[in-house]
Design a protein around this nucleic acid. Structure first.
Lengths: 187, 187
DNA sequence: CCTACCGATCGGTAGG
DNA sequence: CCTACCGATCGGTAGG
């Protein structure tokens, strides 16, 4: 049963998300794929390369979600951003979680790039808050930077408590969270 | 320069918070204290015992903060809970961060106890939200469980972005965050 | 992708 | 608290 590089990255993402990067050994990763730890090096050059691949997948998914967000009004656009974020978490939980939690396990230069990617993503939220302040729909006395951090804090925590098979489906969560944020932002 | 058990736990908390439990070796911890890794075992029995001690400190600090929160109204009590949480983060950042982030590095039984402690803390937030719903100050259409998760998500993320020497001091952050939460909760 | 390793490092111990 | 270790495991390599 031959494995592709993509298979390796996929399973690595799952283990990094479940146990963390440092707690995942190459032998454990190999076992999960039905091969030896040393055999993984036919597909990759180093363990860190795996983390980079998973984290960059996460960065791409969030980046694409931000770029795809649309709305006629700042309120609608913020709702779209929130829904997009939750979709990434639902569809790519391992990459999302690793992107959000394991950057510090990368060396300085790579870690900086991830932080830059997260900042770029956060900028989409800041921008929509700024638009809402400018057009009078959002209040003036909360700066967009702080507001976007609050909203992203709630979004980023979702993967730690939310179970899609619970009482709230994904759309209901998106609506509840957007509503919470919008009530706090409206003037 | 002799070191006490408390010194060891203190510095371990700092390294666990900075690098994570698995990324902290006993030799690195010893170096930080001016001794060899093996010498640490004069003060402790195992590495995991250190994590338990740090995490339990965190649990105690948050538990005490919840117990100390007071307020004439649900609004005031929620503000007090928020301020207390931020005080714990400010005064005991390493224990707070390790308590919030490194529970999964503990074995099952200990991890369960930490999750129970976190749930007990969260219960203080659920209770005040329930009181506010009961007395008509908070809205009925957001259940206390979800509301408390949203508020705690914002609080728990604080240590990842907030710098007390920045433009917002601790009281300003408490006021801003409480205000955000209360606007979202009021009916 | 396996066999057979490598040096480094891990948490931890015995004895002083 | 150090010296001198232990077995286990780590990420990784050479050669097939």
């Amino acid at each position: 049963m031959s494995r592709s590089r993509q298979d390796v990255i996929e399973v690595a993402g799952r283990l990094f998300a479940e146990r963390g990067y440092h707690a995942t050994s190459m032998r454990a990763l190999g076992r999960e794929l039905g091969l030896l730890g040393s055999s993984l090096y036919a597909h990759i050059q180093s363990k860190e390369e795996l983390l980079v691949a998973v984290v960059e997948d996460g960065a791409r998914f969030f980046g694409a979600a931000a770029a795809a967000a649309v709305g006629d009004t700042p309120e609608a656009e913020l709702k779209s951003l929130v829904a997009g974020h939750l979709r990434v978490i639902a569809e790519h939980p391992n990459q999302a979680r690793t992107f959000l939690a394991e950057a510090r396990s990368l060396d300085q230069a790579l870690c900086d790039r991830i932080i830059a990617a997260r900042d770029h993503y956060e900028e989409a939220f800041r921008t929509v808050l700024r638009k809402g302040i400018a057009d009078g729909s959002f209040r003036v006395d909360l700066d967009p930077k702080t507001g976007s951090i609050f909203i992203l804090s709630m979004l980023n925590a979702v993967e730690r408590w939310y179970h899609p098979d619970g009482p709230m489906d994904q759309d209901a969560l998106a609506a509840t969270l957007s509503d919470f944020a919008l009530r706090a932002m409206r003037r």
